[in-house]
Design a binder for these strands. Structure first.
Lengths: 209, 209
DNA sequence: TAACATAACTAACATACGTTAGGCATGGCG
DNA sequence: CGCCATGCCTAACGTATGTTAGTTATGTTA
């Protein structure tokens, strides 16, 4: 107690941009302009520092990108896991899937620049960077596979569905939204509802005849 | 016998790569490595010529990319339009949609390097190149909107569906396949069947109670 | 054979990029 | 006060890129 309690700005010299500032700016730039469209000089400029200074915080451009990719997956994963946990214990398959779809889509469109940057640039970065991101990615995929498998085993999903393929289709479809979503045409929540409607029940009018 | 009858390679000097050869090679490279990952020197090298020679056929790198983007849309469009036309006049909504989905997916995964290159790099090219591709793109989108509208008006689709949004979701989902499709795990045709099953009827087991 | 267009080549340019080395200011701590 | 780590700056490097200008080889045509 003798020592002064560390205050909230303990290790943040007032005017410093810092590692986190660089990452935040870089994530937004990568999301907006892709991997090849963003140079270290542009990142530095947007952050209010000079290009060389970035090397105080990072060893290379790829190290920045790798950090953003990892953080991006962690953010969606966290968002999705919490959404599932918050569901009541007796929640049905429909409610669980709606929660997961909504969480993933909101992470991309509303919550995290890192998540949207990940989706945007993953296919553009060098192989080594992709590989570095794979473990984090696999963990998130496993979370989905786990959810889908439980629902399949419980008989809530159509029998015979391939879990892996279904997960790829689902996440791929949701991620693609990033390329055309326009908040002026409707909220991310509303869009998530539509996705859930389509994926859970299909688009054909029920014609039992 | 005086003159040799013009043979099938009439205007193709034997060793010439030509504009088309450059485009073919470039489309494949762009599809595999993205826009930023492919330089003119790499295109030239893969085509068997030198970088400067490309400027005999094209005025700039962007001109190559623009040509590939347009040709890519034309190829899917053609493929999809023919698939619809080949359906019998009394074909139902399900058959028409299955045909369209299959045609789009096969164009991407089996038929055309140009189409897959388009999907892969559209989000990475300069704004001006994107803009140049927009008219061609809009025509293809209109083809889909036309199909979906007819089915909606006929009562075959769930009432209240937004055509534009539905088209974006559908094409987006199909295009995303390009990032994970592996021919060793199943054919494009089989995958198209699965997409159709999911989109038309959903993934939930029918539980009327 | 002479003339010509086609399709390529060589060599160089300016620019932008990732990266490095060394220097300068600030603020906490002994 | 003096020390030292933190966080940034300046200046330059080598390399890769898109692009240009001038040249050469080849096949067709008159």
């Amino acid at each position: 107690m003798a020592d002064i309690v560390a205050n909230e700005t303990r290790d943040k010299p007032r005017s410093a941009v810092g590692r986190e500032g660089v990452l935040n700016v870089a994530a937004r730039l990568f999301r907006d302009h892709g991997y090849g469209g963003v140079s270290l000089r542009k990142i530095a400029g947007a952050a209010g520092i000079k290009a060389g200074s970035i090397y105080y915080h990072f060893g290379s451009k790829d190290e920045i990108v790798a950090a953003i990719l990892d953080e991006g997956i962690l953010a969606v994963h966290e968002n999705m896991r919490r959404a599932i946990e918050e569901q009541p214990a007796n929640a049905g398959a429909e409610a669980l899937l709606r929660a997961a779809i909504g969480a993933h889509l909101r992470a991309l469109l509303d919550v995290s620049d890192y998540s949207s940057a990940n989706v945007r640039i993953f296919g553009q970065v060098p192989q080594s960077v992709r590989d570095a991101n794979l473990p984090t990615r696999r963990a998130y995929e496993a979370e989905w596979d786990n959810l889908l498998s439980r629902l399949l085993d419980a008989g809530a999903l159509k029998a015979g569905l391939d879990i892996r393929r279904l997960r790829l289709m689902l996440i791929g479809a949701l991620n693609a939204t990033l390329e055309w979503f326009d908040p002026d045409r409707g909220s991310a929540d509303a869009l998530a509802q539509t996705y859930a409607d389509v994926f859970l029940h299909g688009i054909l009018a029920q014609q039992e005849t």
